[in-house]
């Protein structure tokens, strides 16, 4: 999933301060799952902002809505009826959702409420960590299912650097050394010979090196 976390409240206050009324839009997809922008977070943030402005004596109204997804135009369209009554939108979706809302409603200011972080997985309740950078050319088949692009701090492709110690990364000792994990996994699979094979230099064009990327399913995009 795409993970995100709420921006500092002060930043959010600054961004919506000029307006009398805003629409706070959540998303029931990834950001719900990572507890950053679902119905509940919308409710809590709406309450916090209302209280802040009430306290400041500033008239301020918030409408709350949570879309199934903010990255699909059909869902975003559901905002249309609410938008007449508000001066701006504060989106609790990931960056994709924020942009989709902004694209559809070009005359309404749209602000992000979240900092979109990474594509990741739930480590356990309440902890998410990065797993994929969307490089467009997956090597997981060679690396025992552990990604050296997303999980090695130096994005090394052929074994660890000299800073791997006790299975931890020298950049952040809380992070497992990806290559240690790869080695352990290959060993468990009885596929240590893979480790001996050199991976060729990576082509970074599919990773965005050749500009913004698109996917076109010819069969569907008729």
């Amino acid at each position: 999933m795409i993970t995100a976390e709420r921006k500092p409240i002060e930043e959010l206050i600054q961004s919506v301060k000029p307006y009398r009324s805003i629409l706070l839009a959540g998303c029931n997809e990834c950001v719900t799952v990572c507890a950053a922008g679902g119905r509940k977070e919308v409710g809590v943030l709406a309450s916090a902002l209302k209280m802040h402005f009430l306290k400041a004596g500033k008239p301020f109204e918030i409408q709350e809505i949570t879309l199934e997804r903010q990255c699909d135009p059909e869902y975003v369209e559901q905002l249309a009826s609410n938008l007449d009554q508000v001066d701006a939108v504060l989106s609790m979706a990931c960056g994709c959702g924020v942009q989709e809302v902004a694209r559809r409603f070009h005359n309404k200011p749209v602000f992000p409420a979240l900092n979109t972080k990474f594509m990741g997985a739930s480590e356990r309740q309440g902890v998410w960590s990065e797993r994929c950078q969307g490089c467009g050319d997956c090597v997981l088949g060679y690396t025992g299912g552990i990604c050296p692009v997303a999980r090695c701090s130096k994005q090394l492709f052929n074994g660890p650097c000299g800073g791997s110690s006790n299975g931890k990364c020298e950049v952040d000792p809380n992070v497992d050394c990806a290559w240690q994990l790869i080695w352990d996994r290959l060993k468990a699979l009885g596929m240590t010979e893979r480790y001996e094979e050199n991976l060729p230099a990576k082509d970074w064009r599919p990773a965005g090196g050749a500009g913004p990327r698109r996917i076109i399913r010819e069969d569907m995009a008729l």
Binding site: S47, M51, L54
Partner: peptide, 11 residues
């Protein structure tokens, strides 16, 4: 007790 209930009470 939901966070929302506490927030809304104060609000």
């Amino acid at each position: 007790v939901d966070a929302i209930h506490i927030m809304k009470s104060l609000e």
